[in-house]
Design a protein around this nucleic acid. Structure first.
Lengths: 130, 130
DNA sequence: ATACAAATGCAACAATGTTGCATTAAAAAA
DNA sequence: TTTTTTAATGCAACATTGTTGCATTTGTAT
């Protein structure tokens, strides 16, 4: 016996599917209208991350957010998320830009475990309005 | 009359010069042994940032840190810091890697204001020991 | 239906960061 | 030098994020 299906977990997962962007604990909590303890949200997101359902990132403000894993490689030990996260300073949405290629070079003495790349600016939805 | 020279500000600046890495409020506070209020540290670092002396970054854990500006361009409105910050998971130091080139592409609809790139892993100092 | 343990709730705690207001102290003006 | 101005600091209070321990609830296997 491992994982148990609960309403709150289903709800959280649906929120991520609907949102199509990275969400923080407080954003999830709002949609639950205080019906669930915030500690539970933290724990559900942690659990989803270790199950490879979500990936965690730190946004440009230092807030931990999670987003659905889409094109992730799930091979053993190599669950990487080497894509840019775009932080819109207008609508404050953080979105995964999986199609944007990143290239960087570090002296080979550096052992790389993972990356956390944030680009801060105005997203397409907000530039159109302006 | 604009800026006033104080001992605490001098001390903070010296710490950054000695450290040659990014420092958080709490790290600065420790070296001051509680002789200065932590709010003052926040304000000094903010002030230094707006004066172009320090630049702010969010490290891989979401903690705000500041580092000395070295090769920054200080032309009007273009005080960029487009370099990688390396976060060592062993010694927990965060260092600016100004010589490492970064290339990334985003659809042109995205307006880029600044970036915050963290690479997390083991730094050269720590790989040698291992 | 019962038993096990995963999931949740709740209280408490720590750390980070911000704000308002009183006080201190640089440095300019007298 | 003394006085005045106000930038800089101290302090209290607050908000938010995140974590931990323990009791309770609730899936689900038996």
């Amino acid at each position: 016996m491992k994982h148990r299906k609960t309403r709150t977990q289903d709800f959280v997962l649906e929120e991520f599917q609907k949102a199509d962007k990275a969400l923080s604990q407080s954003e999830i909590l709002k949609t639950l209208e205080g019906k669930v303890n915030r500690v539970t949200i933290y724990r559900i997101m942690d659990r989803f991350e270790s199950q490879g359902i979500l990936h965690k990132l730190i946004d440009g403000e230092g807030i931990a957010k999670y987003a659905l894993c889409k094109d992730c490689k799930h091979e053993a030990k190599s669950h990487h998320h080497n894509h840019i996260h775009f932080n819109c300073t207008n609508c404050h949405e953080v979105t995964c830009i999986e199609q944007a290629p990143i290239q960087y070079e570090l002296p080979k003495e550096y052992l790389i475990e993972k990356i956390n790349f944030n680009v801060i600016g105005i997203c397409p939805k907000c530039t159109i309005k302006d």
